[in-house]
Design a protein around this nucleic acid. Structure first.
Lengths: 187, 187
DNA sequence: CCTTTAAAGCAATGATGTTTGCTTTGTGAA
DNA sequence: TTCACAAAGCAAACATCATTGCTTTAAAGG
């Protein structure tokens, strides 16, 4: 994992190069480019291929870095609608729409394709977990019976990601069905 | 998709080559080989690389063929333990153990990585759906309240696959928890 | 400023992957 | 047995990827 913010010279050339590379990868993945190799990325970024070979062990690692950066961007907290069902529905639909966008879907696929040992500990999961915890917390302060955070992750988030990754159809209706199901568990 | 059974000369050399190639891919993927290219596969199979280039458009397609063949083999029906919970638990544990085997997990990853438009219509999904339908059918003839087939697929099968694909831990306890959750929906 | 130094660029080399025209093999059918 | 032909093998040419030693750049610190 290479992080611009951790770079020793945040305003320097390295950071410019890093941004160019990230942008190039984003473009190529977004376009669904068939070949995403270091030389190809380097050309798009206007950078020397050697730089990439020296910075990342392989293309998978670079993809991983970019994917994490792209999928983590959102620091938004889960919506507060006043009811557990409202919160979960709104949240699930947001996730659904987000990850079913073609370029997001491709990132997810790319992460899976790469040797992602770190997905488990990756920020994306943490974000989802925190958002779920927030929703559950609000529900319990209102006195509503609520599923556990794990149940929400396993029965709302996981099925959504599963469908996207396996190229199955995802829509709002599906998201709502998942929410209804998970509420039935605790109701 | 190239299928030995559809070959015009099922007993001929082509079929022998095809089997050698499938076996070679299976071995390489099973070993977790880092490079799985046509030349590498060809060498392992004792076959000329040209043959592969002429038969498949790219390595992804070949992997896809092999993965489908490997994941579809099992025609077993779901276990009949006498109770819905028993059936689902046994079935979920079987799936869990099956797909968390390293080489299976790699196949799943490979399928995701490849351009799998066909996953939705792929035999693997159909098998799971039929098995789930069978379990539900038996439960309803016994008069047990049961979740729908879709619920089972979304809340038991999907989370299992999700975890495997994203390199999260999967064990029997997790499978049992999923079953408990899905039973709570209809209970 | 000037110095230091980490990182980027360059260029040459070797390895690997990919394509192509042609030859050979071996089934299936006459 | 012989023939036809689809598929496999071979070899050469080419393209792309990957590695490495060295040079140059430019940001940070004195």
């Amino acid at each position: 994992m290479v992080d611009a913010a951790e770079s020793r010279r945040p305003g320097g050339r390295s950071t410019r190069v890093l941004n160019a590379v990230y942008t190039a990868v984003g473009e190529l993945v977004g376009e669904g480019a068939e070949r995403v190799s270091f030389p190809v990325i380097a050309e798009r970024a206007g950078v020397n291929p050697t730089t990439l070979y020296r910075r990342w062990p392989d293309v998978g690692s670079l993809l991983e870095d970019v994917a994490v950066a792209a999928l983590t961007r959102e620091g938004e907290s889960a919506p507060d609608t006043g009811s557990l069902r409202g919160d979960l529905t709104s949240w699930a639909e947001t996730i659904s729409r987000d990850i079913s966008r073609p370029e997001r879907a491709r990132y997810l696929r790319a992460m899976v394709a790469a040797r992602v040992h770190l997905v488990a500990a990756c920020p994306v999961n943490d974000v989802r977990r925190e958002q779920a915890a927030e929703v559950v917390q609000r529900a319990s302060t209102r006195g509503e019976p609520a599923p556990t955070v794990e149940q929400i992750l396993d029965h709302v988030v996981a099925p959504l990601y599963h469908r996207v990754v396996f190229a199955l159809e995802v829509d709002d209706a599906f998201a709502r069905r998942l929410v209804a199901d998970v509420l039935a568990m605790s109701g």
